[in-house]
Design a protein around this nucleic acid. Sequence first.
DNA 1: CTCCAATCGCAACTCTTGTTGCATTAGCAT
DNA 2: ATGCTAATGCAACAAGAGTTGCGATTGGAG
Lengths: 195, 195
Amino acid sequence: MEPIKRPGGRSARVRDAVRQATLAELAEKGYGGLTVENVAERSGVHKTTVYRRWGSVEGLISDALELAREEPWPIPDTGTVEGDLRGVARLVQSGFADPEEGPVSSAFVAAAMQSPDAAAALHGFFQARHEQSALVVRRAVDRGELPGTVDAHELIRAAVAPIYYRLFVTHEPVTEADADRAADAALAAARAGVL
Amino acid sequence: MEPIKRPGGRSARVRDAVRQATLAELAEKGYGGLTVENVAERSGVHKTTVYRRWGSVEGLISDALELAREEPWPIPDTGTVEGDLRGVARLVQSGFADPEEGPVSSAFVAAAMQSPDAAAALHGFFQARHEQSALVVRRAVDRGELPGTVDAHELIRAAVAPIYYRLFVTHEPVTEADADRAADAALAAARAGVL
DNA sequence: CTCCAATCGCAACTCTTGTTGCATTAGCAT
DNA sequence: ATGCTAATGCAACAAGAGTTGCGATTGGAG
């Protein structure tokens, strides 16, 4: 017989405890302050077990990322592309500005830069996000606001990229106005037929 | 008398040796593989000295960043905004694709996510880059290709942001076509008066 | 109910990272 | 040349991260 998993057993409890502890630690201390040992202590799971199952800080984050991927996203539906796209951009901006959510999301990005596993997990995460966000574009095409030739994913990328650029590359402050401008610019490009 | 510096003395030699070793290590092993001890050994400087003057891996990178900031950038001059903007975007894309330069630049971004000092240094670096790149926009305005109301820095940001977004956030491959498209989209937005 | 395999807890250990006190050297001033 | 001071080298140490072998516990199968 094949090795059977024990979805409701101790393993699952341990896993949930570690995941929760990871997120709590991340929210408190950010990526730089995340330690395998701290997570172990906080979760009540022995450090050896955490090392064996997750291997490292990056492993912990990769695991947490797969959780985050499942959560649906409140895609805005304002009736116009302008409003919807701005809504998406603002969702990104406010998410990182939030003192609880921000450090966790930032940690995901940071971890992905140092671990191929985390990078793959983050790639999947954003693939899902882009897929969900594409709905905004499809609705716009249906309403005749945009030509059917628009590349939905590319439009979304252009709408949010400047926010991430400011946050993680140039380290400039990001305001709601910045989010709106990025969305508007992407939309203008799409209307011009470039995206 | 005030403490006098010794610009041509041993301190300067040590500093140069460490800087060079840092860049070499970064190019070889990337950010994750950069260690104070390795840099010390490679540079021939004792590890205690490196710890005292640079403090940590992030300190080493911050220092190297201030060097990189000085280096001028080959701003393209093709005669048209399209060409110039695409040139800037391609410069970014090819820089990160380069097996020598890429890991070093990526390390700068990674370090800035974990150290306020490195973040400040990177902020200054990009401020300088944006300033240099703005020349492309000013020329375009002079030629009448763009309205004088264009925000040069904002246009540059929009032109390169999608590249960084792909590289460091979504971890998608980045081609020359992607760079061109980002530049074109930014330009279309600027022409529409959004930037 | 009993047994068995997988998983976890535990303690001891190693290895790497970073620190500290002191001796030594190099560079600049006089 | 010579003395003074800052900077470096050195060795020993402290702290923390990660590993390993073994025994204990868990939860499912028969």
